[in-house]
């Protein structure tokens, strides 16, 4: 188990190197740079050159990358293109929002998707099963920002049970934090829960066909024990894998949905960085986004190890 964890974390290094070099290289092809910001609109060509020299923008890209990397390993992802704000700080400031939405969406997805899938799988062929499958398929087809847009009107504006905009840090107030991410999490979780429900249903059906379920029944165990002990733990193996796959989608959805609630997460940071050509920031967001996905997936792997002893011991 620990070995698995260590190897996964070591595996991160080349991944982050590739990702960072690619983004670094690509983002340097963008027309215009930091100097537009610093010098404003009225600068002369000499000022432009001089500043470029001072900031090291005239060095070859590999040198610039090496410099960036040297700082990055020490936790310094560079400085915003238009003030002294550290990219690391900006990314860490917005991380709670993106993480909250991603995990909140995941939570909602599991909360709805898994029980629905288990129920449908256990009652295969029943009307409820068929209805659940159809609802899940429809749910999977809903654009989450549309759901968010439609949900915020009644919940945030008419009844005002949750705030229509803004994010409250969990360190300030847990209940307010939950309220501030509820609608977004529901919107994000709907489509993910649909995918999860379908997977869970499939996994349950599959597991119920397994020999060991027959064995469990041959021991005279009640249906409940067979289902909730023997079937569920095994069915959770493919389900957990699916959850891992969902993380990328949830993070992507969070970027868009946060716009609707005026939340300042990676989405705002990235869109803003695109709009203001704040390339150090863009770079930082992509790296952090990758890190979030990989770390959540490592978390998923740990959960996976819990339900799958084969992974744990090998």
């Amino acid at each position: 188990m620990i070995q698995l964890l260590v190897s996964r974390i070591i595996g991160l290094v080349p991944l982050l190197l590739i990702v960072s070099f690619l983004t670094f290289g690509m983002l340097h092809m963008v027309p215009g740079d930091v100097r537009d910001r610093i010098l404003g609109t009225d600068a002369t060509a000499e000022q432009y050159e001089a500043l470029g020299e001072k900031l090291g923008l005239n060095d070859p890209i590999v040198v610039q990358y090496a410099r960036w990397l040297f700082n990055a390993v020490q936790g310094d992802l560079g400085t915003s293109a238009y003030n002294s704000q550290k990219v690391t700080d900006a990314v860490l400031d917005t991380l709670p929002v993106t993480l909250s939405l991603t995990l909140g969406g995941m939570f909602v997805a599991i909360l709805i998707g898994v029980p629905a899938g288990v129920y449908a799988g256990l009652h295969r062929g029943s009307y409820i099963d068929r209805a659940a499958v159809l609802i899940a398929t429809i749910g999977q087809s809903l654009p989450n920002f549309w759901v968010a847009m439609l949900l915020v009107i009644p919940l945030g504006l008419i009844w005002q049970v949750v705030p229509a905009t803004g994010f409250v840090s969990p360190s300030d107030s847990i209940t307010e934090w939950i309220k501030s991410i509820t609608v977004a999490s529901i919107a994000l979780g709907t489509s993910a829960s649909a995918a999860l429900a379908r997977q869970t249903r499939g996994a349950i059906i599959d597991v119920l066909r397994q020999d060991y379920i027959r064995t469990a029944r041959s021991k005279g165990l009640s249906r409940e024990v067979v289902t909730f002990k023997h079937a569920l733990k095994n069915a959770s193996v493919p389900v957990i894998t699916t959850i891992g796959f969902q993380v990328n989608g949830l993070l992507g959805g969070a970027l868009i949905v946060e716009q609707i609630f005026g939340l300042h997460g990676f989405g705002s940071l990235a869109i803003d960085a695109v709009r203001t050509q704040n390339m150090p920031m863009m770079q930082g967001v992509v790296i952090m986004g990758t890190l979030v996905i990989v770390l959540v997936n490592i978390g998923v792997d740990i959960a996976y190890g819990f339900v799958n002893p084969k992974v744990r011991s090998s």
């Binding site: 590739i18 983002l27 992507g252 986004g289 996905i293 997936n297």
Partner: peptide, 18 residues
């Protein structure tokens, strides 16, 4: 594996930036 780990939409946004 590297591509799967990349946040697809963020990368799309980055490519749009470029």
């Amino acid at each position: 594996e590297a591509i799967i780990a990349l946040p697809a939409l963020l990368v799309a946004i980055a490519i749009i930036a470029i």
